[in-house]
Design a protein around this nucleic acid. Structure first.
Lengths: 268, 268
DNA sequence: CGAGCGTTTGAAATCGGTCAACAGCAGTGG
DNA sequence: CCACTGCTGTTGACCGATTTCAAACGCTCG
């Protein structure tokens, strides 16, 4: 029903289709962001094999669903450009944003255990994704050692991130939560070659609140406070971080030391 | 340092050692809880291979560490009996319990991505674990298809559980959190053949609070309230669930897809 | 049996939530 | 191009759930 993967086909020749075809022809081996999705230590033969992985891409417009809770699981997705949020709901409408996902990141991993997606994924802006049939990836992992290990790492990183998020929701106050959010976002953007201090927020205030377990009014007030104390400068969705050090301190300094050193190390 | 895996050795012949040896001789293929750790669809040959996985076990007394944050990662662990908690800390001492782990469950998965454990694991009571060298498991996965798939499912289940935990911390109030906690515990115990309604809590009030993101006093008050409204009967660490239906209702167990689609309709 | 910890209970304080009004902006259609 | 509309975000006043502080209780284990 919301399975965007299958309705890629009916072709009218438009600029968009041409763009799409040209992108389709891109192989992982020549993809500009492959260092985010794939292991870096592949030999030529392995690189060639890996190009079998992607024979489908899909595009979403802002607000469109990639999958919904209960959709059957067959694919995982890697973001080429744009961004997504994943979220869960309670029956009374309360929602919890599980994560915001940037280019190079993988979504859909929560579907494997039950065969159906346990959350839903929605585009925050126009977004393109590589579609990977999980069974194909699984088969390829048996042939390529480093790929198998990479996939385990990918799962493990997801778990580690969720744990940090749990620490944030369970142990930080409002201001600390927002600080954590900006620091975390800043780090991920900077790994992608974007400015760590000046960036555009793809998500709204309410979505930030749903991610951090707080109401929109509280988010708004805390942003106003950080703004007035010159720690950040925020106007609508444009954010400037003026005092990253203070944000780190607020976000729970122990962790930020760790993350800072990780940043230095993981640049390869 | 806290690596219990290696200090299993110095032998005085005591009843405990004899017990231990007899357990050591147990293979996965004949383990009473193997249906929790391992895939069920193994043929004989595969079963035999899998017995290579475990050649080490370890025992922890209440309060002992299995691993600490920063310990190097080599093993994952499967609980034979007893229970563990895993947790993260902030610099100022605030702690977040990530999970409580029961027999048949796997701990240590968060260590893969960075090569060091990102959390710490502590025994809640006397506990025995199977020690699995992760590289051996990885190698075996290449040979046994169902095992590989099982491992992916295991990771995915972990992620799904963390997501539920996030929903709990971010979107439920105190009473709902406690209800969720009991329902979740009840389900897992009942899968292990124990009573879903009468059981012993291995963790203290403070640990429950650290798991749910609330203070011990709040936990205590909510327990008193649930007790007085005859939904549970709790005395020290002995819990009787009197009205499981009401607990389910409080925990928001029906995460309805209907609501999600309603939202879709009203929002767009 | 007493010491000490973990837990319970009460009262006061605080943080975040709720409710309500309004501002800002984007998209729509005249 | 501008007015209208509706959505998102901001701000203020108030309220309530949870935390904080303090004291007492009651297990558990030497």
């Amino acid at each position: 029903m919301s399975d965007k993967v299958h309705n890629q086909t009916p072709l009218k020749i438009t600029m968009e289709v041409i763009m799409n075809i040209s992108l389709q022809s891109n192989k992982c081996s020549s993809c500009v962001i492959n260092s985010f999705c794939l292991p870096t230590e592949l030999n030529k033969e392995e690189s060639k094999k890996i190009d079998q992985l992607i024979n489908q891409k899909t595009k979403l417009k802002k607000g469109e669903y990639l999958y919904k809770q209960g959709d059957s699981f067959n694919y995982i997705f890697s973001i080429r450009y744009g961004s997504l949020k994943t979220q869960l709901f309670l029956e009374d409408g309360r929602s919890q944003v599980i994560g915001f996902h940037l280019p190079g990141e993988i979504v859909g991993l929560d579907g494997i255990s039950y065969g159906t997606h346990q959350s839903e994924a929605i585009a925050l802006e126009d977004t393109e994704l590589c579609v990977v049939r999980f069974s194909v990836l699984e088969a390829l992992c048996k042939e390529i050692n480093v790929l198998q290990h990479h996939v385990y790492k990918m799962f493990s990183r997801e778990i580690t991130q969720d744990h940090r998020h749990l620490l944030t929701l369970g142990s930080l106050n409002g201001e600390e939560k927002i600080a954590y959010f900006f620091v975390y976002l800043s780090e991920r953007l900077s790994k992608r070659g974007l400015s760590p201090t000046n960036f555009h927020l793809a998500m709204g205030r309410e979505e930030i609140g749903d991610y951090l377990g707080m109401k929109i009014e509280t988010v708004s007030r805390i942003l106003a406070k950080l703004n007035s104390t010159k720690i950040i400068e925020i106007r609508s969705k444009e954010l400037k971080i003026l005092n990253i050090h203070e944000l780190h301190r607020l976000a729970g300094s122990e962790r930020s030391k760790q993350v800072a050193t990780q940043l230095l190390l993981t640049r390869h």
